[in-house]
């Protein structure tokens, strides 16, 4: 496979993820993780680490795709994936926005949104499940997940602070206990 051909393959995969991301990026995580493992040999553990990188940066968490692209094909891979992942959805938004400006609100747009909501929730739970299966592999990681969830539900502390605090605590606990 030539380099150009492999970049084209990479581009078509991420262009498809862009269009399939119903209700947000979490929906495509299981599909993305499976493809990364099968075609590019990226382990579940590495995938979750790269997912963590996406969480550490500002902006959309799905910018993690850049780190995947870099892993697969260096800078050319990162650029390819960036363009492929954001362009199709951007074009659809532009076309959708124009149509919506002309047509205005219709009962069908509402119907599509209502239909997509439970579907995207189901896919989000699948995404959550895919990440959880890799990320929660020991008492410390389970505890961190539960702690983060509980603090988000029960307090009004800024989610960024919760994430940072939980992660820092986690590193220390994992280091001391030697458990994941």
């Amino acid at each position: 496979m030539t380099n150009t051909a492999s970049l084209l393959g990479l581009a078509s995969s991420f262009a498809l993820f862009s269009i399939l991301a119903v209700g947000g990026g979490v929906a495509v995580l299981p599909e993305m993780q499976a493809l990364m493992a099968q075609r590019y040999g990226i382990s579940g553990e590495s995938f979750v680490h790269i997912y963590g990188i996406g969480q550490l940066a500002p902006g959309p968490n799905m910018l993690m795709v850049l780190a995947l692209g870099y892993r697969i094909a260096g800078f050319a891979g990162a650029l390819t994936v960036l363009v492929a992942f954001f362009t199709p959805a951007l074009l659809l938004s532009l076309i959708g926005g124009r149509i919506w400006d002309k047509v205005g609100e219709t009962p069908w747009r509402r119907a599509v949104q209502n239909a997509l909501e439970p579907v995207s929730l189901g896919l989000m739970i699948s995404g959550l499940y895919a990440i959880a299966r890799e990320a929660l592999n020991g008492p410390v990681s389970f505890g961190l997940c539960a702690l983060t969830f509980a603090l988000l539900v029960a307090t009004r502390i800024n989610p960024v602070l919760i994430m940072l605090g939980a992660s820092a605590t986690g590193v220390v606990l994992m280091k001391i206990s030697g458990l994941p």
Partner: peptide, 19 residues
């Protein structure tokens, strides 16, 4: 690796809350 594993574990809690 520990830091990213910890971030991913915390992020799982965050996604659960978003859901």
């Amino acid at each position: 690796n520990l830091a990213l594993a910890a971030v991913a574990a915390a992020a799982t809690g965050l996604i659960a809350n978003t859901v």
